[in-house]
Design a protein around this nucleic acid. Structure first.
Length: 509
DNA sequence: TTCCGACAGTGGGGTCGCAAT
DNA sequence: ATTGCGACCCCACTATCGGAA
């Protein structure tokens, strides 16, 4: 198949708003792929590359050659070129990569270049990703969408599922099942603003788990072989030796566990997420801080799949199989008062919050359903807008991303703490675009600096140390609640209040 | 007819290793 | 030694479509 056909499909999908129509366009392209092109072609249609890493991102796409006049590329040729790119390494690799990128883009027409930029940058923005492609695969292969979706979540690999469905149909899909050693998409949790709301979703009795602020891990063991996967199904076995050792010591043959890895201090209190993150990103066990596993679910045990069993069955098996120090804190509650007490206890222990779970629900692979609901504390501050950035995509032409500052009572100036674009409705975007044009003092086409007069109420999860911002602190997960037209900038919250929330001292001097 | 689940989009904070400067 | 980049980790929230209720 010509690469241009994929590019044309992507352009048509972008220009269509209806999902059904997008699915039909994608299914039509899937049907026209040659058998050997299905894995690469299906990935491109979903806005992905077949290769996880290429070494090429936005910066590597800055200086592209002019587009070709005629379309000569095939799907197979593009796949071969990207495969060659993605194995380049060592001294001189950047120049080599630049040459290969130049050759590929020089052979591509304007429409093909647009697709390639989207694929390499990961921001195709055609309004269709793996979710819609699963529907398109079902249409093209004439199999039930539920079969495609289940295979996709159990295999964790869109390309493999597309290939199986299109070449082998329903029987081939049915052969994809839970396998020890192959990661599956983890079940996710919804958010609720408070404990009472969470219980309305799950019902009572409910199970309340402590929510740890670490890294989601899925651990597979078969015999002495242990593999550790992240939420996005990356293999990080080599970086978590303590997790591997702990699971290898269990008295089982085969097991799949779901949990969280995190660093604790000597007294058993959790370390900040940044420390867990640093440990997990570093190769080799050089640190004095161990990264230990704390499991909350059991998906397979010695030949038996537990995925479709109710939570209470899986959790009973978990408690029977693992020592208590390898599991998260957990209790069953009947009332909102009991749940609130569990929430308070988790926070008092320095943990991130709780996850409220319905005990009858199966393990909903890859879903963010109402059976698991997380609750975290929320802080708010009244901050001052220092600048705004022009938005992209559907926010083009609107001032979108706010630079936030806290008042420094010593100098009367404002200290930047981070940015946010979250929580804004279209109406608010319209309003703030007008407002900040009035306050603007400069505009470089990207950042519009404004007089520091507009106060905005910001919600956030916590304060973390920052190597980037001048006050040495930044907000975690900041989002807009509302504009405070009743407050002047001189009444905004101070950097000292921010530091107090985070337990941070002002830097000396 | 209204409601609601799933999906895509719009970006935020951080960490590391690697290659180039 | 420092810097820029790519690839990961943690994410919140709104708009939209289309099937469920």
């Amino acid at each position: 198949m010509r690469f241009l056909d994929i590019a044309a499909t992507s352009a048509a999908v972008s220009a269509t708003s209806g999902r059904k129509a997008k699915i039909e366009l994608l299914a039509d392209a899937l049907r026209r792929l040659e058998p050997g092109e299905i894995t690469a072609g299906a990935a491109y249609l979903a806005g992905e590359l077949r290769q996880r890493q290429t070494g090429v991102g936005y910066a590597g796409l800055r200086d592209l050659p002019p587009p070709a006049d005629e379309a000569t590329l095939t799907v197979a040729a593009v796949d071969a070129a990207i495969a060659e790119l993605s194995v380049v390494s060592g001294a001189g690799s950047q120049a080599r990569r630049r040459d290969l990128v130049g050759a590929l883009f020089g052979a591509a027409t304007a429409e093909e270049q647009r697709l390639l930029v989207g694929l390499f940058s990961g921001e195709l923005r055609q309004g269709a990703q793996a979710g819609l492609l699963a529907e398109a695969i079902a249409v093209a292969a004439q199999v039930p969408v539920t079969a495609v979706r289940r295979a996709l979540l159990l295999a964790g690999d869109l390309k493999q599922v597309a290939s199986a469905a299109l070449l082998g149909g329903a029987p081939a899909l049915a052969e994809i099942h839970l396998r020890v050693g192959t990661p599956l998409s983890p079940m996710l949790a919804q958010s609720a603003p408070d404990v009472a709301a969470a219980l309305l979703d799950t019902g009572t009795p409910a199970v309340v788990d402590t929510k740890l602020d670490g890294i989601r891990i899925q651990v597979h063991r078969s015999g002495d072989e242990v593999a550790v996967f992240t939420r996005s199904l990356d293999d990080i076995t080599a970086r978590l030796p303590d997790v591997v050792a702990a699971v290898r010591a269990l008295p089982v043959r085969e097991i799949i566990l779901d949990g969280e890895a995190m660093a604790l201090d000597a007294s058993g209190r959790p370390r900040p997420f940044q420390e867990t993150s640093s440990r997990a990103a570093t190769r080799g066990a050089t640190s004095s801080v161990a990264l230990m596993p704390y499991f909350f679910d059991l998906l397979h045990l010695d030949g038996t799949d537990l995925l479709d069993e109710p939570g209470r069955v899986r959790w009973a098996a978990l408690a029977d199989t693992l020592p208590a120090d390898l599991t998260v804190g957990r209790e069953t509650v009947e009332t909102p008062e009991q749940a609130a007490a569990a929430f308070a206890a988790a926070l008092a222990a320095g943990q991130e919050g709780i996850v409220v779970k319905a005990p009858e629900a199966p393990y909903d692979v890859g879903r963010r359903g109402a059976a698991w609901v997380k609750v975290k504390p929320r802080h708010t501050l009244d901050l001052v807008v220092l600048a705004v950035e022009w938005g992209h995509g559907r926010r083009r032409g609107w001032l979108s991303n706010l630079h936030l500052g806290a008042r420094d009572p010593g100098t009367g100036e404002f200290v930047m703490l981070g940015k946010t674009f979250k929580g804004l409705t279209d109406e608010l975007l319209r309003w703030q675009t007008e407002r900040f044009k009035e306050l603007a003092v400069s505009d470089d086409g990207w950042v519009v600096r404004v007089r520091p007069e507009q106060v905005v109420e910001i919600a956030f999860d916590g304060v973390q140390t920052s190597p980037r911002y001048p006050g040495g602190v930044a907000l975690r997960f900041a989002r807009v609640l509302r504009y405070r037209d009743d407050k002047r900038a001189a009444e905004a919250d101070t950097i000292d209040m921010v530091r107090a929330i985070g337990g941070h001292q002002a830097p000396a001097g």
